[in-house]
Simulated scan of single mutants.
Amino acid sequence: MRVNKWGVGVILAASVLLTGCAGGASDKPTESKPSGAASQEAEAPTSDCPELKDGATVDGAALGTCIADAMEGVAGYAAKTSVMGMESTAKFNPSEKAIESISPAGSLIAIGDEAWVKSGSGDWQVADTSSSDPIIAGLSTTAANVATLDPAAAAAALSGEFTVTGTGERLGQEVFLVSGSVEQSGTAVDVVFEVTKDYVSLASSSTASVEGQSVEVTMEITEWDVKQEIVAPL
Rank of each mutant, 00 (worst) to 15 (best):
V16S: 02
G36L: 15
V10P: 00
S204I: 08
I102F: 06
D59F: 05
T141Y: 10
V16N: 02
E174Q: 15
D69C: 02
D48M: 14
L149W: 01
S206W: 00
S32M: 14
D225G: 07
P151F: 02
T167Y: 10
T222H: 04
V217N: 11
E194S: 15
V182T: 13
K5N: 11
G112L: 04
I136V: 14
V200W: 00
E174T: 15
P233R: 04
D48P: 07
V117H: 01
V146P: 00
T167P: 08
A37E: 12
S15V: 01
A127T: 05
A38I: 09
I111V: 13
K5G: 06
P104G: 09
G24C: 06
S181M: 11
A153P: 04
R170D: 14
E87M: 13
S103M: 06
T142Y: 05
D128Q: 10
G9A: 08
V210I: 14
A154S: 13
A232T: 08
V16T: 06
G138P: 11
N4Q: 06
D225S: 12
D69M: 06
S179L: 10
L63W: 00
E211T: 14
T129S: 08
P45L: 03
W116Y: 09
S26E: 14
A127K: 03
I99W: 00
